[in-house]
Amino acid sequence: MEIGGIIAYLVSLAIMAGIYAVFCLGLNIQWGYTGLFNIGIAGFFCIGAYATALITTPKPTGMYAHYVQQIFGLNLPFIFGLLGAAIICGVIAFLIGIPTLKLGEDYLAIATLGIAETFRLIFNNEHWLANGPRGLMGLPQPLQGLVDPRHYNYIYLIVVVIIMVLIYLSIERAIRSPWGRVLRAVREDEVSAGMSGKDIFRFKMQSLVFGAMVMGIGGALYAHYTKAISPDVFTPLYGTFIIWVMLMAGGSGNNKGAILGAYVVWGIWIGAKFMTDFLPYTLKARAPYIRFLLVMILLEIILIYRPQGLLGEEKKVSKLIE
């Protein structure tokens, strides 16, 4: 591979890791700062991606409409796709929170898992909604006309990084505000926060919705990067667990850790791909499973030996409570 090819490859790697970093930041709000156990990230990933696809593409007409069905197509700019994805994910999170946030952590986990699986089923089976298993294509990309399409990824990398940094800054700001302090108090020990059950429910709900909105933006960023989406992308492995491994590896409760974890684990993931290229031919078809096996073993090792992750939790805020 020549230098140009390597750089292009690194750029694409950086874009995907950046998108995953956005998910990690969203999960960090829910898990790292509030202790909410969301194992249905893939659901918000999926909804965010489909929301922006429907918002930013035109509804097919003529012959094309025979092949591609979608419930609507608004043909709006990229930024509206991002906002729409965030809002819809927030609404869905709100609806899940109502029955589950008053119960134990496990219930939220099972419910989010169920939502993720259910939405994948719906997008797969309901052709009128978003073209069923074949999915949607031709999503527009922001600032498309600026450069040669071959070099477009540089632009998109900048877009992703800017959005990631904006999300990072807004979370940092929120977490350092009184609101963030209450969230941690809720996580550490609900009783000591000296609030009524209703207050705790409200704060958990706000955190769940905020995190889900960030995840929705992540889903939208992904959709505009690949320009084509289909339900089989949003599996529990790619859509949920790799993100958990990233956050655990980086350090939950630490936004820098969330971003670092995304880049490190995605790097390992891609690196493992090169390694599995050396496998004998018969095993090659099963290489992705071997990679996932390794990532899951990595997760178990982190959980047992370094649950605080690479960076550990930032202590600045919790000092204010004590």
Binding site: F241, I290, L293, M296, L299, E300, L303
Partner: peptide
């Protein structure tokens, strides 16, 4: 033994779920 909470145990069981499944897939 480390006093990890129920969520950490559940997380670990999720990892175990995938380890079992990946071995079967391999």
């Amino acid at each position: 033994q480390k006093g990890s909470g129920a969520v950490m145990l559940a997380m670990s069981s999720l990892g175990a779920a995938f380890i079992i499944r990946m071995i079967i897939l391999i």
